[in-house]
Nucleic acid binder design. Structure first.
Lengths: 119, 119
DNA sequence: AATATATATTCTCATATGGGAATATGTCAA
DNA sequence: TTGACATATTCCCATATGAGAATATATATT
């Protein structure tokens, strides 16, 4: 079995750097494909293909206006991704604490845990 | 050019459902490969392969204890993913607000704008 | 209609899977 | 050493890219 399709879900769609860049670029306001091509320096067919993938997963909306097709990011599907990673937050927080503690301990080989000024 | 390697970064590694399940399973405590195989009902070689991918990206740590190899999740790399999606939070929040507003408006039709019921 | 501009699609190709089966490697126990 | 158990690796294969080039489609303008 090959890898899951990029259009199977947001996780797969977002695995590609180019698509992540596009989503950021289209987050604030809708833009025609040409703007993406110029701003992200990619070939036009490449942009269209990535947009199609994003569109299939519902990560972008399209609106035709004359010759131009304006795309805009639809962040909703990213919520699942955010919530999934959110679950692990406490773990990396713990790790940060451990690192902090170690730094503290090294800074002041504390007897009781006296606070000392930060450099 | 083919798709980026699954070991190129956390985004790609996490695109696979199986690997996400493994990360969740190994989040709280380290477990030997056998446990993963039983709990997630996957073949042993498959588990080992996924673990290798996760290991290369730094999403899991391994510790050999006799015949067993205990793996545990290292959430740190997921932080980037979390922060990236975090950026879009305000957008889906807005959308939620819009949806809320619409529900509100429908619940108590505003005096100013004459809402008409939907068929 | 003819032309120009903006996008989308198609084709080819090198590459990376992920699963299944078989096999190799590592380690403990007798 | 031999045998058993736990993991890792290798081979084979069907499938899905993503980039580049060429081409098709859509729409506005003249």
């Amino acid at each position: 079995m090959p890898r899951a399709s990029t259009t199977s879900d947001a996780f797969n769609a977002v695995a590609e750097l180019r698509r992540r860049q596009i989503l950021v670029f289209l987050a604030d306001q809708e833009r025609p494909v040409g703007d993406i091509v110029v701003h992200l320096k990619m070939r036009q067919p490449s942009a269209s293909k990535h947009l199609r993938v994003l569109h299939r997963v519902g990560l972008v909306r399209a609106r035709r206006k004359g010759r131009l097709v304006f795309y805009r990011t639809n962040a909703a599907p990213l919520r699942h991704l955010h919530e999934w990673t959110q679950y692990f937050e406490r773990f990396w927080s713990r790790q940060l604490l451990r690192i902090q503690d170690r730094a503290e301990a090294q800074a002041h080989p504390s007897p009781k845990t006296f606070e000392q000024e930060k450099p």
